[in-house]
């Protein structure tokens, strides 16, 4: 197993049981409760591959793509959900898609993700890297909810996206989707 080059600080979640050490991109080492660590399918997979012998020595799992400031936030989320979530059997992909539409973002998670959008995206990327599906999904839903309030022009401006359609192409697409835009249809709606 790789060992982190250095550790400037070490944080311990004060709970009994096996501890898992991980290091961030900057080499900062965190010591996690096994239950918390295993909410990341990547860490779970590594531990299973290693026969879960990580806790007894000084080995550190390097999470080279996750910055410390983002990992700290993810830890907050992991610790909360480790203590509050019920054990659930993994959902089938189709059930997950349905859940995306039907389930609201819980209040605690809404507050957790009430941060700058760039931070949400960084948490999303880290959750994807660590394979924490629930957190990644919450980030995606939050961003989708933000996007839904924006017009095409606002989105282009917000993200510096160039409109690479020719005027003719754009007009053609707009014709196809004109009924999706702000003006309600002239007939057919009695609302």
């Amino acid at each position: 197993m790789s060992t982190a080059a250095s550790s400037s600080t070490s944080e311990t979640i004060a709970e009994p049981g096996l501890k898992i050490k991980v290091s961030t991109k900057e080499g900062e080492v965190f010591e996690l409760d096994e239950k918390v660590a295993k909410m990341s399918q990547v860490i779970r997979g590594i531990l299973e591959d290693l026969g879960e012998q990580n806790g007894g020595d000084d080995s550190v799992l390097p999470l080279t793509q996750v910055e410390t400031r983002i990992f700290r936030k993810i830890l907050v989320w992991l610790k909360y959900h480790a203590g509050h979530d019920k054990e659930e059997a993994p959902k089938a992909e189709e059930d997950e898609i349905i859940a995306r539409f039907c389930e609201e973002i819980p209040e605690w998670d809404q507050k957790f993700l009430n941060v700058d959008q760039a931070v949400i995206l960084e948490i999303m990327l880290a959750a994807d890297y660590l394979d924490i599906k629930k957190l990644r999904g919450l980030c995606c839903k939050t961003v989708a909810n933000i996007l839904k309030t924006k017009t095409v022009e606002q989105i282009r401006e917000m993200y510096g996206i160039e409109n690479d359609f020719t005027p003719e192409e754009e007009e053609e697409i707009r014709k196809q989707t004109a009924w999706c835009e702000d003006e309600p249809p002239r007939q057919g709606s009695n609302h």
Binding site: V143, L147, V152, R156, T177
Partner: peptide, 18 residues
């Protein structure tokens, strides 16, 4: 995955971004 949280008409609308 972000788009998967949108309804069809929203997806159609955002086809015009780029």
């Amino acid at each position: 995955e972000i788009f998967q949280h949108m309804h069809l008409y929203q997806r159609l609308y955002y086809r015009t971004v780029c």
